[in-house]
Simulated assay, not measured.
Amino acid sequence: MDPHAGFREFVLARQQALMRTAYLLTGDAHLAEDLLQSVLAKVVGHWARLARDGNPEAYTRKALVNQYISWRRRPRPELPSASLPEHGRRYEEAALDRIVLRQALARLTPKQRAVLVLRFWEDLTETQTAQVMGCSLGTVKSQTHHALARLRELAPELAGLLSEHVIEEVAR
């Protein structure tokens, strides 16, 4: 019997959603691919148990968040800035909002960014977010509060947009 039976189907079915989460956590497509690949390499080792009695997607999301936070703790070279060139062409207002929001998200702590991605992009409840992050419900609530306050501080021009529904639309 193949201990990895069903893993390929799981990856094919959930790859895009997991990649989206990885991208929103890292803010970089290449880092997101690396993050997802490293997590899936670990998940396959636990696949038989997960397929039998676990929730493979929840486990994989939790592993993504944990691996991302772990990566952020290690010093890494600074990534190129996403700032606009001084004499670039005019961008639509929504595109500018997305750029400002992504820059502000990049300046949050890894846990703050993770809680916003899980709550407002992945549309998880506070309880589900606490389970994925392996923390208490109170921690999710306080991290959300502090993260939104920090976003308002970093990008005051987006203060009117910082509601859960608008964050979702701007981040897309």
Score class of each variant (00 low, 15 high):
Met1Pro: 11
Met1Thr: 15
Pro3Trp: 07
Ala5Tyr: 15
Gly6Glu: 10
Gly6His: 08
Gly6Trp: 14
Phe7Cys: 02
Arg8Asp: 15
Arg8Ser: 15
Phe10Tyr: 13
Val11Gln: 04
Leu12Arg: 02
Arg14Gln: 13
Gln15Thr: 01
Ala17Trp: 14
Ala17Glu: 14
Leu18Tyr: 01
Leu18Lys: 02
Leu18Ser: 00
Met19Val: 02
Ala22Ile: 00
Tyr23Leu: 11
Tyr23Gly: 08
Leu25Gly: 04
Leu25Met: 07
Leu25Thr: 01
Asp28Trp: 01
Ala29Gly: 11
His30Ile: 05
Leu31Val: 07
Ala32Trp: 03
Asp34Phe: 05
Asp34Gln: 03
Asp34Trp: 09
Leu35Arg: 00
Leu35Lys: 05
Leu35Met: 03
Gln37Phe: 04
Gln37Thr: 01
Val39Gly: 07
Val39Ala: 00
Leu40Thr: 00
Ala41Ile: 05
Lys42Arg: 05
Gly45Phe: 06
His46Asn: 14
Trp47Pro: 06
Leu50Asp: 07
Asp53Lys: 14
Asp53Phe: 15
Asn55Gly: 10
Glu57Thr: 00
Glu57Trp: 12
Ala58Glu: 12
Ala58Pro: 00
Tyr59Gly: 04
Tyr59Leu: 02
Tyr59Pro: 01
Tyr59Phe: 13
Thr60Leu: 08
Thr60Tyr: 06
Thr60His: 00
Arg61Phe: 07
Ala63Gly: 03
Ala63Cys: 01
Leu64Tyr: 01
Leu64Ile: 04
Leu64Ala: 04
Val65Met: 00
Asn66Leu: 11
Tyr68Asn: 06
Ile69Ala: 11
Ile69Cys: 06
Trp71Ile: 00
Arg72Ser: 15
Arg72Trp: 11
Arg73Trp: 07
Arg73Lys: 09
Glu78Thr: 13
Pro80Gly: 08
Ser81Asn: 12
Ser83Cys: 04
Glu86Ile: 02
His87Thr: 03
Gly88Ala: 13
Glu92Cys: 05
Glu93Ala: 12
Ala95Ser: 09
Ala95Glu: 08
Leu96Asp: 04
Asp97Asn: 06
Arg98Met: 03
Ile99Met: 12
Leu101Cys: 10
Arg102Trp: 09
Gln103His: 08
Gln103Ile: 07
Gln103Glu: 13
Ala104Ile: 11
Leu105Glu: 03
Ala106Tyr: 10
Arg107Met: 11
Leu108Ser: 06
Pro110Arg: 01
Pro110Asn: 09
Pro110Ala: 13
Gln112Arg: 03
Arg113Ser: 00
Val115Leu: 05
Val115Ile: 10
Leu118Ala: 11
Phe120Arg: 10
Glu122Leu: 03
Leu124Lys: 06
Leu124Cys: 02
Thr127Leu: 14
Gln128Gly: 08
Thr129Met: 10
Gln131Ser: 11
Val132Ala: 12
Val132Phe: 07
Met133Ala: 03
Gly134Phe: 04
Ser136Arg: 09
Gly138Val: 10
Lys141Tyr: 13
Lys141Phe: 07
Ser142Lys: 05
Thr144Ser: 13
Thr144Trp: 12
His145Gly: 08
His145Asp: 15
His146Ile: 00
Ala149Gly: 10
Arg150Cys: 10
Leu151Asp: 05
Arg152Tyr: 04
Arg152Cys: 12
Glu153Ile: 14
Leu154Lys: 09
Leu154Trp: 04
Pro156Ser: 15
Leu158Pro: 01
Leu158Arg: 02
Ala159Leu: 05
Gly160Phe: 09
Leu161Glu: 15
Leu161Met: 13
Leu161Ile: 08
Ser163His: 15
Ile167Arg: 02
Ala171Asp: 03
Ala171Tyr: 07
